[in-house]
Amino acid sequence: MMQLTDVKAYYDTPRGPVQAVDGVTLDIRENEVLSIAGESGCGKSTLVKVLYDYMPHPLRLVSGEILATIPQDNGETLTLREHEIRDYWWRHISYIPQASMSILNPVVRVERQFYDAAGGRYARGNRRELRKQIISYLRELELPEEVLTSFPHQLSGGMRQRVIVALATFMHPKIVLGDEPTTALDVVVQRGILTMLTRLQRQMQNTLVIVSHDMGVHYQISDRMAIMYAGKIVELGPTEALFHGAMHPYTDNLIKSLPRIGDRDVRTGIPGAPPSLLNPPKGCRFEARCPHVMDVCRREEPPFHEERDDHMVACHLF
C-alpha cells in the first residue's frame, strides 16, 4: 500500500536540523491496522506527516523514497510518489488529528465542512443528493443528524472527534492516518471512538495507521506495531508478538514498566532520557539508557533486520 525507503525528514532550526525522522524504512500493507508507538519527541507524528505528504516549513523531506500504490475501483493501480499524495487527500488518504477544537472551522456549520471535504466531485445541483448520502453515512455511524446543523463548539469533545472521523472516512479512503486520535478524551469516549475506527476499517478493508503514546490502545486495536525511538523505528512486528516477546531492550523495558490493574508487582521506569535529535549519538540511540549496552553499540548503528517471522528489530543483541 505504502512503502517508505530510508526516509529522512528534518526540521530546520537556527541550531541545525532536528533529525525527527531519520532513516525509516517501512512497508504498510493493505487491510491492516498498523500502530506507531513511542514517547513524545520520538518522531512518530512527523512520520505520519511524511506519510500524509504534509510537510510545512520548517519540516522538510531530506532524502528517501515514498511510494503509495493505491488500488482503484476499476482494477487498476494508482502509483503515487512523494509530493503527489496531497492531490488525493480525502479521496484516497485522510488524516485524523489529535482531538482538538482547532481542526474544524469554528464559524462554519458541520454540514458545510462535509461539502468542502467532498468538494469538486459534486456539482452544485447535486447538494441534495450529497446531503442524503452524508445523512445515511452518519446514521451508519450512529451519529445524530443534528450534528450537521451544529457549529463545532456546540458539540462535546467526543462528538466532535466522531464528526472528524466521519469526515475523514466519508469518501472511503484507502488509507486513514490517525495521530493520537483519542488522546485527551475520557476513557469511555476513547473506547467508543477506537471501536468506531476499527469497525470502519473492517468494513472498508482499508489501511488504518494509528499513532499513540498509550500502549493499551496499541494492544487493543492494532495488527502490527512499530516502536519508534529518537527518530528511528527500533522494532516492528505483529502486536501480540511484540507484547509477549519484545526483542529490543527499549520495547521490553517499556512494556514491563506499565502498571496493570490487578497486579501490584513493583515496576521501574527506564533511567535517563532520550538523546537530543539535534545531535544524536553515532551508534545505537538507546545506548545511554540500555541495560545490555556493549562496546559495539556506541560505535555502530544496529541494522534494522528481520529477526523472527515478520518481526524486525534494530539491536546488536540480535
Binding site: V187, V188, Q190, R191, G216, Y219, R260, I261
Partner: peptide, 13 residues
C-alpha cells in the same frame, strides 16, 4: 464502565 473502557494490556475488549 470506567474499568471496561480502559485499554488494558493482555485482555482484549
Amino acid at each position: 464502565l470506567l474499568l471496561d473502557s480502559v485499554s488494558k494490556i493482555g485482555e482484549k475488549w
